[in-house]
Simulated assay, not measured.
Amino acid sequence: MVLLCSHYERYVYGINEEAIDFLNSCSLLSERIPESVRLLQVKLPIDELSRQQWDSRAPKLYEFALNHAAHWSPGAPVTNLDAAAILSWMKSPKPRDVKRYFLCFGEEDIFSRITRSENTRRDLFRHLQGLVDSRNGIAHGDSTVQPLPTDITEYCSTVLKFATRVDRVFSRLLARIARTSHPW
């Protein structure tokens, strides 16, 4: 159970890394990159800057401008997006957090895009949440968490279904952002 959840989590982080690598390789103009992605790029540096004494901010401000000015300059090509900055807020790949991640790229509800019916969507969401909750329970020593072999089989099927469908949808979304062919 823990291993499966780790693979699911790695999938989410991995697809993020692939997406950012793709966007960087396209040298998109700043205005083509979703604002929410650009905002996440600067969140930690700005928060760090705000905690420093006013008279000692110059070196960090210089570094900030050097690394992030292109993100906010119309017509400037952006090639230095940081994948880690996009998911710095995510603790575990709970469905609501995964939905929030894809919203950063303009996908309102990834679960609605990868399913046709409300029942399928609800089951997918529930199984992914159950997987993460079970993993967290096991990792924190909750002896009441005892997944059955059928549960594990269902979770494996759910992760595979989720990843396969998201791969297609996200590839098309990135192609629209970059106005180019699908990255995968």
Rank of each mutant, 00 (worst) to 15 (best):
S50N: 13
L148S: 14
I110F: 01
A58C: 06
N67Q: 15
R113I: 04
S27N: 15
R100Q: 15
N136M: 00
S36N: 12
S171R: 02
A58E: 14
I46R: 04
E9H: 09
P93C: 10
H7V: 10
V42I: 15
R179C: 05
N24E: 07
V12K: 00
Y62C: 06
R51N: 13
Y8T: 01
H71V: 03
L128R: 01
I177K: 04
V159R: 02
E9N: 07
F105M: 04
L3S: 13
A65W: 10
L128Y: 00
D21M: 06
E108N: 00
R116E: 14
C5E: 15
H140S: 11
N136K: 07
M1D: 09
P95W: 03
P45S: 08
S30N: 15
R57A: 11
S27V: 05
L131G: 00
K60T: 12
R176I: 05
I138R: 01
E48P: 01
A85V: 07
S27E: 14
R10T: 04
E18I: 10
Y101M: 08
V37D: 03
T150D: 14
L103Q: 14
H182R: 07
S92N: 07
L87W: 02
R122N: 09
A58P: 04
I46C: 09
F162M: 03
E63K: 09
K99H: 09
D82Y: 03
S143K: 08
H182N: 12
A178Y: 11
W54I: 00
V37T: 10
Q52N: 10
S6M: 12
S171G: 14
L148W: 10
E154D: 14
P45T: 14
R126H: 11
P59H: 06
A84G: 11
F105R: 02
V98W: 01
F105K: 02
D151P: 05
A85N: 09
A83M: 04
I110T: 12
G141I: 00
